[in-house]
Simulated assay, not measured.
Amino acid sequence: MTLTWAEFRRERRRSRQAWALLAAAALAVVAGLGWFFTVGQFAAVEPPAGGPSEAPVLATGWMDAVPSVRPVTRGPAAALLDTLPVKGRAAKDNYDRSAYGQAWLDVDRNGCDTRNDILRRDLSGAEFTEESQCRVAGGTFREPYTGRQLTFRRGSGSSKAVQIDHVVALGDAWQKGAQLLTPAQREHLANDPLNLIAVDGPANQDKSASDAATWLPPNKNFRCHYVARQISVKAAYRLWVTPAEKDAMKRVLASCPGQQTVVPETQ
């Protein structure tokens, strides 16, 4: 069958339109995949810019420092790190949380338990339950591990969204010297505001009992303070670090050579 010139031009135009539609569809697929792997389901979640770079230790007027095994002096965190013993991990098969005493004791004897003390210290606009000056009911804060703005609301399902993290995890401490402490010293370690920060629940679960060699806060702005705080806690309670842990801490502190130790403001 022979096409006329007009028919030939119509067929060629239709062919071009079909190819244009196929090209547009291909571009849409490529763009969709790009979104999926950069800001979609598989994307790494980056913390917001300007996340916290430090966290408080005490709140003047109603919180007191908890006596540690030894005082930590102000100075370069890297220098204090070099004073910590370097050893391997001790056994963990005999670890039990009860070795640190009852959870959230009122160690500083200010009339409020430690969990509520830390919530009151870290939350902005902390609200209290009716007829209580201790039991925190809600508040907001810029969470340090992720850098996100979070809201805490007390409740059977909502409270776990904000958790109180032991900066030096109790399981990690047990394998690095806490077994050698007295029961009273372990109670202090578990309730010392120096070792406690209110954080995002899922981030805390992700950290678990990790040390600096295996977990660091996603909020990179907070890492120098976080590592310096771990070093300060370990020095205060005569704990040691593993070789891998010390190397990880040194890498973090290399980016902030002026980072100081973290100590209660009363010291």
Rank of each mutant, 00 (worst) to 15 (best):
A77W: 08
R142D: 08
K92R: 14
A91I: 11
W240G: 11
F36M: 15
T266V: 15
E131Y: 11
N204M: 04
G171S: 08
A209C: 02
G101P: 01
L189I: 04
A203G: 05
T129H: 11
A248M: 03
L181Q: 10
S255P: 04
G88Y: 05
S158G: 07
P47K: 00
A78N: 10
Q133I: 07
D113P: 04
G258S: 13
D108F: 07
D108H: 09
A55S: 15
R229K: 12
R16L: 15
S53I: 09
W215A: 11
N94S: 14
S53Y: 09
V233P: 02
R89G: 07
W215P: 11
D200P: 02
P71G: 09
A65Q: 10
P47D: 01
S15N: 12
R10V: 12
D106Q: 00
D117I: 01
T140E: 06
M1R: 14
Q163K: 09
T4Q: 02
E127G: 14
I197G: 01
L253T: 02
G139F: 00
K246T: 04
G61D: 11
L194I: 04
H225Q: 08
P264E: 09
K246M: 06
A209G: 02
L27P: 06
L239W: 08
R115Y: 01
R13G: 15
T242P: 09
A103G: 07
A178G: 06
V69C: 11
A6E: 15
A203E: 11
P243A: 07
A23V: 14
P243G: 06
P202E: 06
T261V: 07
D192T: 10
V72P: 01
R251I: 07
G111K: 02
V29M: 13
F42A: 13
G157Q: 12
E130N: 12
R148K: 13
D200G: 02
P71L: 10
G147A: 04
V66E: 05
A55W: 09
G101A: 03
R120D: 04
A77Y: 09
A55R: 09
V66Y: 05
S159D: 13
V136E: 00
P243S: 07
A103M: 06
G111Y: 02
T242I: 10
R14G: 15
L150Y: 01
T151I: 05
G139W: 00
S98H: 07
